[in-house]
């Protein structure tokens, strides 16, 4: 069995895997920045009292969470051109990941803000702070700490989700595995290798989460 497993071919294809890995990393990073932006806007809308802002945000979050990422990706890739928006596949991919992950990020940030005890809001209200001052000086700095670990968890999910972009022929890591599988008919080698690279990325992000936990744990612990 194992004698059929060709390490040599893997080594031969390493430059391709390297390129794929690099693409996965940068497009995931870019998508995560996009997701943060989308998430912050959605969350701000969701926290307003007015129905006018809250309803669209809630509808968007529900729509994204209720439907498969693949369906969303295909809608953007095949559907948008029919509506007159033709975008390169890389842009579509980053857009899809940002819009999708953004919905989850919005909920993570909202949970972080709502986890701040009511007394913090009351104390800042009582001292005469405006809504913006309260958010900026009291609530968000505390919510920030609570949200970092789940946000890094979402980043891990995003990296894995980026594998779907191989289906719209973005040359990322999974695409490299597919190429090895189809060119040389070596699916075991191809997909095991990309799995190992995803595992590597996972450990990097997990290490970052642990580091940030230690860094955030030092100053001003909760009473």
């Amino acid at each position: 069995m194992l004698e059929n497993f060709s390490f040599r071919t893997i080594v031969e294809y390493l430059p391709l895997f390297g390129q794929g890995l690099f693409t996965t990393v940068w497009l995931s990073a870019l998508s995560f920045v996009g997701a943060l932006a989308v998430g912050i806007v959605l969350c701000a809308m969701n926290l307003q009292r007015g129905f006018l802002f809250r309803a669209p945000a809630k509808a968007y979050i529900d729509a994204v969470r209720a439907t498969p990422l693949l369906a969303q990706l295909y809608f953007l890739y095949f559907g948008l051109p029919r509506l007159g928006f033709v975008l390169p596949e890389l842009v579509v991919g980053i857009l899809a990941l940002s819009l999708n992950s953004g919905a989850y990020v919005a909920e993570i940030i909202r949970a972080g803000i709502l986890s701040i005890p009511r007394g913090q809001v009351e104390a800042s209200v009582a001292s005469g702070m405006t809504y913006v001052q309260r958010m900026r000086l009291v609530i968000l700095p505390q919510a920030f700490k609570v949200t970092i670990p789940p946000l890094l968890g979402q980043a891990i999910v995003l990296v894995k989700d980026s594998a779907l972009l191989s289906l719209i022929s973005v040359a990322e890591l999974t695409r490299a595995g597919q190429l090895l599988a189809s060119d040389r008919f070596m699916p075991a080698e191809g997909f095991l290798t990309i799995a190992a690279f995803y595992l590597l990325l996972y450990y990097c992000l997990k290490g970052l989460a642990a580091l940030s936990g230690r860094w955030l744990g030092t100053a001003g612990a909760r009473t």
């Binding site: 005890p117 007394g119 913090q120 009351e122 104390a123 800042s124 009291v138 700095p141 505390q142 700490k145 100053a219 001003g220 612990a221 909760r222 009473t223």
Partner: peptide, 9 residues
């Protein structure tokens, strides 16, 4: 406040 509500950060 009864529960102080100091800013922990």
């Amino acid at each position: 406040f009864q529960s102080f509500n100091l800013y922990p950060h």
